[in-house]
């Protein structure tokens, strides 16, 4: 009934915009579905137990991605182990201790700048800074990733610290607790979910990272324990994908890795969504 009274021009606008919107949404949906189905369809048939459990051998012309999987695990662990204390500590300082607003502003601006820098530049600086002194190795890659992920951990921790009610802190102070004790017993437990969200986001970023690792962590495929592994050069799954696809033309292996990465991405997104839901529920209590 409303539409009848509209002029032709307005009706045209209405129809055009609706069509454009539906077209765009359709395009986005189609894109996601296509990527998922294509990559999984091409990749899953290529995933064999042999591929997952062996290392590449030129003698038997066999390709295995076990070293790449291990390297990925090592680099994720090493990065998180270093970045967590740094990021959480910085966030606690910024929200609980800092009294100099100018300094806080500068630090927050620096964190924003860091998160905008492309990964290839991290790779280059990481190469100059870490690989030149300790050689191309997973540890150099991990340290580069620490700088990359610092802003993420800082931001998510800070956000969840801000949701701890001020009255909790005042209550603890009122009972005679010192600053550090309040932080340790009241504030820290309150920001656990923020830290977890930050960890999940960081793991996702580390898994997907390639440009920053190519020149810092190298692309060897040797099976090592975690200590030796961190001191030796090694490719993570993404770097291995790049090398197999671009340099060796092994598209089957590349798609197998892509499928694994895709599944991991879906899982990580699920986990992040779950934690966020939990977070929102708790906040509304």
């Amino acid at each position: 009934m409303l539409n009848k009274s509209l002029s032709k021009k307005r009706k045209g606008f209405e129809v055009l915009m609706k069509a454009l919107m539906l077209l765009s949404v359709g395009l986005t949906v189609a894109l996601v579905l296509f990527l998922l189905i294509y990559v999984l369809g091409q990749g899953v048939p290529n995933i064999t137990w042999e591929l997952l459990s062996t290392k590449p051998s030129y003698l038997t012309e066999r390709i295995g991605i076990l070293p790449d999987i291990l390297n990925t695990v090592y680099i994720v662990l090493a990065t998180l182990l270093i970045v967590l204390p740094l990021g959480v500590g910085a966030a606690i300082y910024l929200t609980e201790y800092a009294s100099n607003n100018k300094l806080v502003g500068i630090i927050e601006y620096a964190a924003e700048t860091l998160s905008g820098i492309p990964s290839i530049i991290y790779g280059l600086v990481g190469m100059l800074l870490f690989s030149n002194s300790m050689g191309t190795c997973l540890m150099a890659g991990a340290l580069t990733l620490v700088i990359m992920n610092l802003p993420t951990i800082m931001r998510t921790t800070q956000e969840s610290l801000k949701t701890v009610p001020q009255s909790y802190r005042e209550g603890a102070f009122g009972l005679g607790a010192g600053k550090w004790r309040v932080v340790r017993t009241v504030v820290l437990p309150g920001c656990v979910d923020g830290v977890i969200t930050g960890c999940i986001l960081s793991v996702g970023r580390i898994l997907g990272e390639s440009a920053a690792l190519l020149f810092t962590a190298g692309f060897a495929h040797a099976v090592n324990g975690i200590i030796d592994g961190l001191a030796a050069p090694g490719a993570t799954l993404t770097v291995a994908l790049y090398v197999y696809a671009k340099e060796q033309g092994e598209f089957g292996v590349a798609f197998a890795i892509a499928a694994i990465l895709m599944v991991l991405t879906v899982l990580i997104n699920f986990a992040a969504a779950l934690v966020q839901k939990h977070f929102a529920k708790r906040r509304s209590l």
């Binding site: 894109l31 998922l36 997907g208 390639s210 440009a211 994908l241 892509a258 990465l261 991405t265 969504a273």
Partner: peptide, 11 residues
């Protein structure tokens, strides 16, 4: 959409 954002660039 966040899935699309999370897919590694090499993929």
């Amino acid at each position: 959409v966040s899935l699309l954002a999370g897919i590694p660039s090499v993929v």
